[in-house]
Design a protein around this nucleic acid. Structure first.
Lengths: 168, 168
DNA sequence: TATTGTTATACTCTATAACTATA
DNA sequence: TATAGTTATAGAGTATAACAATA
């Protein structure tokens, strides 16, 4: 049975489109900064940032692919680029010979360190400048909750229900 | 030398990453729905949605390219696909022979009408289900403000862009 | 000359499926 | 059998620059 026909009111549509638009504009802006100043894509930056955050600068491929949005082959491609540029290394995990551990190199850390100020500057200028402190709080909490919800709700390989509306 | 050494604090980083992640996950989800149920990309959906909103279902190419984030050639590409599938038409503007007016067709409207329930369902399930009404309000307001701010902020490598006249 | 839109082209990125190897 | 990752491949999408037509 098709879901009820009026699920989103004007406010909801507003919020939805604003969210998508802000995300798109912001990503565009930071991507340009990353590309210009460090020849890095947004995805590559995310991977390096995640590795930087890790205690020992290491992650398994699967963990990275899980964290970043992409498929495994996509991550292999990006990791290959990063490795070619000397920003990460790949070694097989001694504990599980199937797995591959990606580690950020000193050059990788240096690049991130070099890019971060400009990056942060763009984000602050576009995203935080028009926000009051209280807005920021709410935004952080609300979006965090949404993120957790999305992450928890659809295991991304789940079969989307095909029975949507009458067949054909 | 970098302009401002003050980094983003934890809350800000949180909000920033959450925003990007939610945007990414949400776009992924709706794109899958649109592709599966209507063979439509997110950009194409946006174009059709904008045309649907217009009083007479028409927009000039430049206005669409301005609203959507992409380059003109990108819009030409997408508009070409939409036209090939009979979802829009393109005619030159009688008032300005340089301009091209894109109009949504009945088939285009029908497709949007068919896709909208499922689309809205995805958005509601992923984005609004974990939100209280007050959160939604804040989200809508705050993100709306951010969007306007970004739209108004000239990209530092600003290329001459068509400025919006006050009255159409 | 400036603006609108298209075309040609080259490139990046992503997804799918087949494949290898380990567990 | 199931899982981790790679490879091959194919396709979508995007940006840039050159271009034609109109203002």
């Amino acid at each position: 049975m098709t879901p009820d026909p009026a699920p989103l009111d004007a406010d909801q549509l507003n919020a939805y489109f604003a969210l998508m638009e802000v995300g798109s504009l912001l990503q565009h802006a930071v991507e340009q900064q990353l590309r210009t100043e460090g020849d890095l894509s947004w995805v590559q930056f995310q991977v390096l940032a995640r590795l930087t955050d890790a205690p020992d600068g290491r992650h398994r491929m699967t963990d990275l692919a899980d964290g970043v949005v992409y498929s495994r082959s996509g991550l292999t491609y990006q990791a290959g680029l990063l490795e070619k540029n000397g920003l990460v290394t790949r070694e097989s995990d001694p504990d599980d010979e199937r797995a591959v551990v990606v580690a950020i190199t000193d050059a990788g850390r240096a690049l991130i360190a070099r890019l971060l100020p400009g990056h942060v500057d763009v984000v602050r200028r576009l995203l935080f400048q028009p926000l009051r402190h209280r807005d920021l709080d709410t935004l952080s909490q609300v979006l965090g909750r949404v993120r957790d919800h999305i992450r928890a709700t659809p295991p991304r390989s789940a079969k989307p229900r095909r029975s949507r509306g009458p067949a054909t």
